[in-house]
Nucleic acid binder design. Sequence first.
DNA 1: CGTGTAAGGAATTCTGACACG
DNA 2: CGTGTAAGGAATTCTGACACG
Lengths: 101, 101
Amino acid sequence: MDYKEKKVMTIGIVSELTGLSERQIRYYEVRGLITPSRSNGGTRKFSFSDVEKLVDIANKMEDGLQTFEIKEMERRKRRKEEEAKRRMIRGQINAAFRLRE
Amino acid sequence: MDYKEKKVMTIGIVSELTGLSERQIRYYEVRGLITPSRSNGGTRKFSFSDVEKLVDIANKMEDGLQTFEIKEMERRKRRKEEEAKRRMIRGQINAAFRLRE
DNA sequence: CGTGTAAGGAATTCTGACACG
DNA sequence: CGTGTAAGGAATTCTGACACG
C-alpha cells in the first residue's frame, strides 16, 4: 500500500542506494535478512524498506557482527515490539474495566 | 530526498503499476509529459511521482485529451501555483509592515 | 496523433561454482 | 563466514522503423 513497502527496485539500483555490492545483497537474502520479491522472469524486486534494512545491516556488519547475530537481533526486536503491543492492549482493557466499576 | 521523488524504477515495473504499455510510457516521455532519468547504460529510471503523473495522464487521455493539451494543463497549473505562492509572500510582507506601523 | 509490433543489439540480472580465508 | 570473480544463459530494455488511421 505504502510506497515504502512496494517492491519496485532492481538490485542494481539498490546497490547504488546502499553502497553494497550485488553479491552482498544476494548473500544477505540467502541468510534470510531481507526478502525481496521476484518478477515473473526471476529478477529480484526491492522496496525502500528493504534499502533501509540493508543500510542497517551494513552498519552492523561493520561493527563485526555476523549475519546470524543480526538476524537474532531482529527477532528480539520484533518480540519486544509485540510485547509492548500486548501490554498496551491489556492496559486499555484494564482501563475500560475500571471505568465500569 | 523523498522516496516519492527518487528515480528508481525500470519501465517494466512502471508499466505494471500504471497499466500502461511500455510504448505508451516512452511516447509520453517523447512528448515531454514525464522526464525519467537514465542509468549509465541508458535504461530509464522512474519515481513514484512519475507513476502518479502517468496515472493522471492516462485518465486525461481516456477523456479524449491530446498530449499537447495535457501538457498545457500542467503549465497552467504550475503558473497558478506560483501565483498563489507570490500572493502568500506579498501578504506576509504586508502583514509584517502593518505590525511596524 | 497515439500505439502496436517485429528486429537487432546492448544493458541488466540470474545461478552455481571456484577461490580465499 | 562473507565476498570477489569469471561463465553462460536468460530476462529486460533500448532505438528506429513500418503500420494503421
